[in-house]
Design a protein around this nucleic acid. Structure first.
Lengths: 196, 196
DNA sequence: GCCTTATCATACCAGTGGTATGTAAAACTT
DNA sequence: AAGTTTTACATACCACTGGTATGATAAGGC
């Protein structure tokens, strides 16, 4: 049997994506061969190259998948934490969830480490601006509207704060001595509240 | 002629390193083939694999070379800017030079982007801790000793600030609208002076 | 003057991402 | 219902890659 129903085709597509995601996460992009992916997925290269243009396109789909999951979770956390007493509350809740993601191997390898190297900087920016940084910028814009930080600081600050969180995630996962999720995030909070 | 004098051997080694550095900088690690390197260097694979264990080892030497140049320049700038009136002066002078490096294509591709992906996180950390982050940590330790920031903040802050600068470099080189080297660095300075 | 050894050059190899082609079943046409 | 087209793969193949094994030649020590 070679031809499947559309549902079956979607199924093999998802199977390939799942196998690729797992391998990209554990072994990295370059150390993951197409042969290994289709082996784990229980299919062949024919199926893979039918569903995806090439290895990089497959990676981009995995990358986007991870980013969308992160995005949804951080937005939800921020929305749920909106407070009338502390204008920083929603922003901090969102960043705390993002920080949790940035500490996972999946996010580090797929999104942060390999993502930049595999797709060029341009494509990475294009996607990351939309998903990652834009949320930070929106949060800062809200703080600016409340008068807590200055307007023209929003853009440069969003870049730096997002990257600060990425670095914090790396630091945590590498178990730097004397570093915990809590004291890292406290430091970040201090950084943020110090602004004017 | 196949055998050379030691000086000639060193020369070919340097030629290979230079060709590799140029290609890694302009085309990236994966899009640079060994064949292209030895072609540009005017030698053969035999010479390359005699002088370097493998492609990754060659890359690591290039990486270290770039990092050492950056390190020397930032240290010099910081040392030259030590001031009795402003305790932040030396630190800011050093970070300003680092920021300039972080805006160059060479540093972005070789050190920041490909570096993490090619050598694993472990090796990258190991080297980056020594060269990049350690300088930031030392600067912060100095500020802590003066009582401007708290001691236990030094480590987490050094991670976050270094990554903030990296991000700033990316942002600058991608020409984000309304972003200049000056206003980026002013934002960073504000971030730093906001600490206590 | 011989022998060892450093410094390459060349031929070769296994594995890689990617393509061309074959093929069977589903879906559409009439 | 039969025939045709198209989808969803499977298989065989290819150019190229990093890396290795082997060969060659001159330098340097004895």
């Amino acid at each position: 049997m070679v031809k499947r129903t559309p549902e079956q085709a979607e199924e093999t597509r998802r199977t390939i994506l799942a196998a690729a995601r797992h391998l990209f996460e554990t072994k990295g992009y370059t150390d993951t061969s197409i042969a290994a992916i289709v082996h784990d997925a229980g299919t062949t290269k024919g199926a893979l190259f039918y569903h995806f243009a090439n290895k990089e396109a497959l990676f981009r789909e995995v990358w986007t998948e991870v980013q969308l999951e992160m995005d949804a979770e951080t937005r939800a956390a921020a929305a749920a934490a909106i407070s009338s007493t502390d204008p920083y509350a929603a922003f901090l809740a969102g960043t705390r969830v993002y920080f949790k993601w940035a500490s996972t191997q999946a996010y580090q390898r797929i999104v942060l480490t390999d993502g930049r190297a595999v797709m060029g900087l341009d494509r990475w920016q294009e996607n990351d601006d939309r998903l990652g940084r834009n949320n930070v910028a929106n949060g800062l814009r809200y703080l600016a509207k409340q008068g807590h930080i200055s307007d023209e600081r929003v853009v440069p600050m969003s870049v730096m704060l997002l990257n600060a969180l990425n670095g914090a995630g790396f630091s945590l996962s590498r178990k730097d001595p004397g570093v915990t999720a809590d004291n890292l995030f406290e430091a970040f909070e201090e950084l943020l509240r110090g602004l004017r």
